[in-house]
């Protein structure tokens, strides 16, 4: 009996401290110090309508926009996931063929690998700077602006996520497209 009573007491105490107390502490801190990211790093337009999140990829298919990496879940941010296909799977070969056609890639102009491989969560907000430059001509042509202007914007936005530890520079696709829409 005694161990059971002690167990019940500790269930209550740990629930109160580790769930209620701990959650309240972290919640209070995050909401006070960094409310924007605590709410999900949401981006609002000038009317206050939510257009997405800095951290979450969204679907882009129009030629005037940069396209993100493929997503195994169709950029569904309420049920994220990866393809979970083996890298030897023919399913991935088929998906890659479609993407090659979509981008018009060729042996002379091979597709950057990050545009052919889906991310683990299907919501990777980034592409490499190289993959953005790869798309710059298409976007410039569709928008009727000089490619150099698009290239400049990419260079401005590109960043190294881990400083010297990550030599490949990345751009955030949604932020880049927003900058194109609102020069």
């Amino acid at each position: 009996m005694k161990p059971l009573i002690a167990s019940i007491r500790l269930v209550i105490v740990t629930l109160l401290i580790c769930v209620a107390g701990y959650t309240a502490l972290i919640l209070g801190f995050a909401q006070l110090v960094t409310p924007g990211t605590a709410e999900g790093s949401l981006i609002k337009d000038t009317d206050g309508k939510i257009v997405g999140s800095h951290l979450i990829a969204q679907s882009f298919t129009n030629a005037v926009y940069f396209w993100p990496r493929p997503s195994a879940v169709g950029y569904n941010a309420a049920a994220a996931g990866g393809s979970n296909k083996s890298p030897t799977s023919t399913n991935l070969t088929e998906r890659a063929r479609q993407l090659i056609e979509q981008y018009g890639a060729s042996v002379e102009k091979p597709l950057p690998a990050n545009l052919a491989a889906a991310s683990g969560g299907g919501l990777d907000p980034h592409i490499t700077e190289h993959a953005a430059l790869y798309q710059a001509n298409r976007v410039a042509k569709a928008r009727n602006i000089p490619p150099s202007q698009v290239g400049m914007l990419i260079k401005q936005q590109a960043f190294a996520p881990g400083g010297a530890l990550t030599p490949d520079r990345l751009v955030n696709v949604l932020e880049l497209n927003l900058a194109l829409d609102n020069p």
Binding site: P87, T93, A96, I100, A117, G120, D124, T128
Partner: peptide, 24 residues
Amino acid sequence: TQAFAGLPIEQNVGNLEGKELRFG
């Protein structure tokens, strides 16, 4: 990624399927 062998896809980085770019 072995599934991309022989396709016009750059193969100078490792296998990126199921990976996020921001972690390196």
